[in-house]
Design a protein around this nucleic acid. Structure first.
Lengths: 339, 339
DNA sequence: TTGTAGGCGTTATCAT
DNA sequence: ATGATAACGCCTACAA
């Protein structure tokens, strides 16, 4: 493995000049430039990232940390699409992406990355209601962007959907179809996104002057199994709901399966609307009505904000809200006659 | 940001001792140990990765490069599940994962990562039939593992499915159902995986003494659109096939859609079998028969081989073949009567 | 058990 | 337009 010294020696110049060449300084004689270029190509030289980072204090790397269970992360197309947006944006700017999923001790990971100068900035995926890591960022003044929104009014950059509004509209849509017994199933209430969507759901009911039946509100994890379990429970209720708002397509998918197995026909007996519009939603049985959240745009936005902040760490916090829209497919219809 | 010197000063010891503490050397007086520990915690110190890497020549990072289109990568659950396996294995060993998707100039990326000492080892996802990057690894003797298999007999570690065998069995299964007009649709023939599965398909036909109709063999990209397009083409043939082997569930999904739109009933009019058994395959209309490839195990295997090689770069090349199995759902049935 | 000093490969500061 | 030299923060002989 050759170093800058080897190149300098072969090109018969000082390491300084080689360094200048590498960093595209203007004032180098074309002749010297030539010699350096050919030396580099002969030696197949590439700058040592560690050495460079040590002095420049920059890594040209951004970290992406998903504070979720590994399965919930990789199995959920939502995250993968956001990740795609981030990755694409990073490649464009010639940055690398460091990826990590940790549950529990994300604090330690972040400490290592931040204080260990491992990354120039961090994307934090999914915020919890009471997120200690968020406080870290605030204290550290380290470039970071949140996917989702903070629960309090912390000064962090973030990109989020209009979740409250979206859930409100989704529920209203069901109400307009004549549904009154509408249930809500979601992931952990520790996630802000769950709270927000639940809030929109409640608000729609309130505006329609309908009561919220607490046995209609159930949560678990952001996984298919949760959808399956909760839907089963709902359908076994004395008075089962005629419609369900699922706070994630993955969950809706599980609900679909449960309904099917319990002989409950969707949408005739039960309407289901999901969230995200993952590709699979188009192919479920029946195709799933859902709230489209523009996953890649979220990723783009997150990357955009992050790189801006890396460049100017002092600027005031910025927020980006991506509008959603309801996609009506075949899992929702007008309310059935009560038997 | 504090350095090892700050810690040393505060703990009233030399940096050497602190370094020893960090690297868990045995001979440190409990008393000193205490002082160092508390200094670290007060200063919230973490070792600078660049500085450490500069001297140790290790990064505790593995690189994952997908030499595919960004969309084909992130949209395909196959890759995401493999990535999950890798990520999990890396976390266990306290390694970080650097992720990159590049099309075209993967050579430059790999050069930078390898010669720039950016990673300790590399996972290369998907091998092309004539892959120059593979030759690079061979020359560089850099720790690397291939997901898929090399086309020639290059000396590289790799993990792969028994693709030829699997496609053979899948096709045989269709033949046993009475099908004779069996088509094959797949991704690019530049990928070894496509060639292997095509080979198994041909072999099954050969063993059954059936001719291979070349108009029944069609390829495109590993994307849903390809499945849609190719299936449409096949169904418009003078004599359309009664069954299709799709070399990826994503492609099969597109085929399903095309059949549906053209009024061709699956499986009554057309049997389709896919590859991979992605989660969505269970929920397509109808649920997809497919070849299960144990995606996460592939990821585990890749990581296992890679870390072994990082530890001992000299050992001879190893290969891991993960057995597949056919999962029969509802997209395949006995051959229909020819009208 | 602990400390001193040199070096890892690069960039930055001053010179020339 | 180019060089000499001193950091950057850590580890590792070697010494005590």
């Amino acid at each position: 493995m050759s170093t800058i010294k080897d190149v300098a020696k072969m090109a018969q110049v000082s390491t300084t000049t080689v360094s200048r060449y590498l960093n595209e300084f203007p004032n180098i004689r074309p002749e010297t430039r030539e010699r350096i270029a050919s030396a580099i190509s002969v030696l197949n030289y590439r700058a040592n990232v560690a050495a460079r980072g040590l002095v420049t204090k920059s890594t040209r790397t951004i970290g992406v940390v998903a504070s979720t269970d590994v399965d919930d992360f990789f199995d959920n197309p939502f995250f993968m699409h956001v990740l795609k947006g981030i990755s694409r944006a990073a490649v464009q700017r010639r940055y690398d992406v460091l990826l990590s999923t940790v549950t529990g001790k994300e604090g330690e990971l972040l400490s290592n990355w931040i204080h260990g100068h491992r990354v120039d900035g961090i994307v934090l995926m999914k915020s919890r209601v009471d997120d200690p890591t968020l406080k870290m960022f605030a204290c550290e003044r380290f470039p970071a962007v949140l996917l989702g929104r903070p629960h309090g009014n912390e000064q962090v950059d973030y990109v989020d959907n209009d979740n409250v509004e979206a859930a409100l509209r989704a529920t209203q849509y069901l109400i307009e179809l004549g549904h009154l017994d509408i249930a809500f199933i979601g992931g952990s209430r520790e996630m802000v996104v769950t709270e927000d969507r639940l809030k929109g759901y409640r608000e729609a009911l309130r505006q329609a002057a309908e009561p919220v039946h607490e046995e209609y509100v159930k949560v678990g994890q952001y996984a298919k199994q949760t959808g399956y379990d909760l839907c089963s429970q709902l359908l076994r209720l004395r008075r089962p709901p005629t419609a369900i708002v699922a706070s994630d397509d993955i969950i809706a998918t599980g609900a679909l399966q449960a309904a099917h197995q319990l002989g409950c026909k969707v949408p005739q007996d039960l309407s289901i609307i999901g969230f995200n519009d993952i590709p699979a939603s188009e192919f479920t049985i029946p195709p799933l009505s859902t709230v489209r959240v523009h996953m890649e745009r979220l990723g783009d936005g997150v990357a955009q904000l992050l790189f801006d902040r890396v460049q100017d760490p002092q600027q005031p916090a910025r927020h980006l809200i991506i509008k959603t829209e309801i996609v009506v497919r075949n899992s929702t219809t007008i309310v059935p006659r009560r038997s």
